[in-house]
Design a protein around this nucleic acid. Sequence first.
DNA 1: GGCCAGGACACCA
DNA 2: TGGTGTCATGGC
Length: 216
Amino acid sequence: MNQIEEIFKILFDRYGPQYWWPAETPFEVIVGAILTQATNWNNVEKAINNLKKHNLLDPYSIHNISEKDLSNLIKPCGFYKIKAKRLKSFIEVFINKFDGNISKMNIYPTSYLRKELLKINGIGMETADSILLYALNRPVFVIDNYTKRLFYCLGLGDYKLPYEKWQQIFHNFLFPIYQLYQEYHALIVEHGKRKCRRCNDKCFLKKALYLNLTFG
DNA sequence: GGCCAGGACACCA
DNA sequence: TGGTGTCATGGC
């Protein structure tokens, strides 16, 4: 077992399954992925519930509603004007290229979809990969600040490495199993939220890893 | 009252 | 290409 797999095991033993992504449909995952940018998930839930309450959580409803009305509904998640715009620009592509249909989107290879997602204003690498991993079940590892912070603290990567270099580390050392990637990323976030603001020697993960490295 | 949250992008040197 | 400001609400 390599160190990347080892860390997954330690985190999973500690925190258990995270049941990510908390959404009823792949489309809801995508909406959540855009709304959660730099935002606490609790606030995103409020925004999504507003959309549900008004029966607007589907591509064509979001397409038809005005940007201003949309921004008012998603207000609780913060950055609401820019996120309304971003949601709209995703929907535009989603409807024009994939008929607003996840199944039609899912026909295409991962590399093509990633490229198309990244063309959309407001969808960067992390959001694109979250969509691929959690909405489309593609084995693409999501790199966020929690990931970089943790693995930098553990001495497994330079914090300033570019996104795709970080991603390569995980792709190189893990089997491409989407369930594994989904759980791993969720565990990293959970760990980051609970423990590892500032990783120090008291961190159980560091201790466990050190013990495993020293004594097998 | 300050800090941070499941980022992305425009702008500038 | 690398650093910085901006977008903003809500919980602790």
